[in-house]
Structure formats: C-alpha cells, structure tokens
Design a protein around this nucleic acid. Structure first.
Length: 151
DNA sequence: CTTCTAACA
DNA sequence: TGTTAGAA
C-alpha cells in the first residue's frame, strides 16, 4: 500500500486511549469523563456494558479543549458549545483541504500548497505560497513549478 | 492494577 | 464532583 499524504497530514487518528490515559493527559477526572459522556458531550468508540471505554485522538483534543474553557471560567455547557463551534469550523477546513490539497511544491523559491486547478480549463493551478510568516496566492501552470515528492 | 456502576458524602 | 464499595 502506498503512503497517503492527506491521510498522514489531515488525520492523526487511529490511536486508541483508555479512560485513565485520557484522564492523566488532560487533567479531567474519570468521574467527569463518564459524566460528560452521560450528558452526551463526549462519545467513546466502544461502550459495552461493564467493559472499558475506548476513545480516539479526536476525543482527547475535545476533552483538552473543554477543559481549557472550563479553566477560563466557562460552564461545562458553554465550554462544550465553544468546542462544538470550533470543531465545526475545523471540520469544514478539513473537508476542504482533504479535497483540494494536491501536494507541496516550490513557488518563488518557497514552499507552497498545491491547491489544484483553478478553473475548468485545467491549465493553471492555485498555489498557496508560504514565505516565513507571510503567505499569498499565485496562479501558475503546473510545469512552471517544482513539485516536492510526497512520502 | 485498572475500569465499571451505583450510591453516598 | 469526589470518593468508595464490590465486581469484572
């Protein structure tokens, strides 16, 4: 099987954690984690009666995020709401990039995101150039840029 | 030793 | 929420 750039870049999933691990990583008690679950705020991968819960990495991020807002003084409900908004935006961004990111190239001597053909003529591609902290877009013919091998 | 559920502080 | 008991 070949190396999947998008998968490796846009999904740091596949890792599984136990409730104790998440508790240690986030500072949220196992009691709280089970309570948040009952409230419908987090969802274990598996939830068979009497058996240990398993969580994915996304849940770790969610718990850390909720914890962050709780520490800021938000109520649990408000914290979850905040995280939900962020999660939705991240999901949209993720969906877009997963579809549009074709690879990494060199444009103007800098790293650039290959965002694919800009129009239906399949002549020019849109590149997102990254020059240090500065970024800008550029339309170029694919043969005008140097592609960086992936994987 | 860790996690689960349920109940009490 | 913390803690605890007894079972798994």
């Amino acid at each position: 099987m070949s190396f999947d750039l998008k998968k490796s870049m846009l999904s740091m999933d596949n890792l599984i954690f136990g409730i104790g691990q998440i508790s240690e990583m986030t500072g949220v008690s196992t009691r709280q984690l089970r309570y948040w679950e009952k409230r419908g705020y987090i969802h274990p991968l598996t939830k068979e009666d009497g058996k240990a819960r398993q969580y994915d990495f996304k849940t770790v991020i969610a718990v850390l995020s909720i914890k962050h807002y709780l520490d800021e003084g938000y109520t649990l409900q408000a914290a979850v709401s905040k995280v939900s908004q962020y999660t939705k935006q991240a999901s949209l961004f993720h969906r877009f990039m997963r579809r549009q990111l074709k690879g990494i190239s060199i444009v103007d001597g800098h790293d650039a995101l290959d965002l694919g053909y800009f129009d239906g003529t399949k002549t020019k591609k849109l590149y997102g150039v990254i020059n240090g902290s500065e970024t800008y877009f550029k339309l170029l013919n694919p043969d005008e840029v140097q592609d960086i091998p992936l994987g």
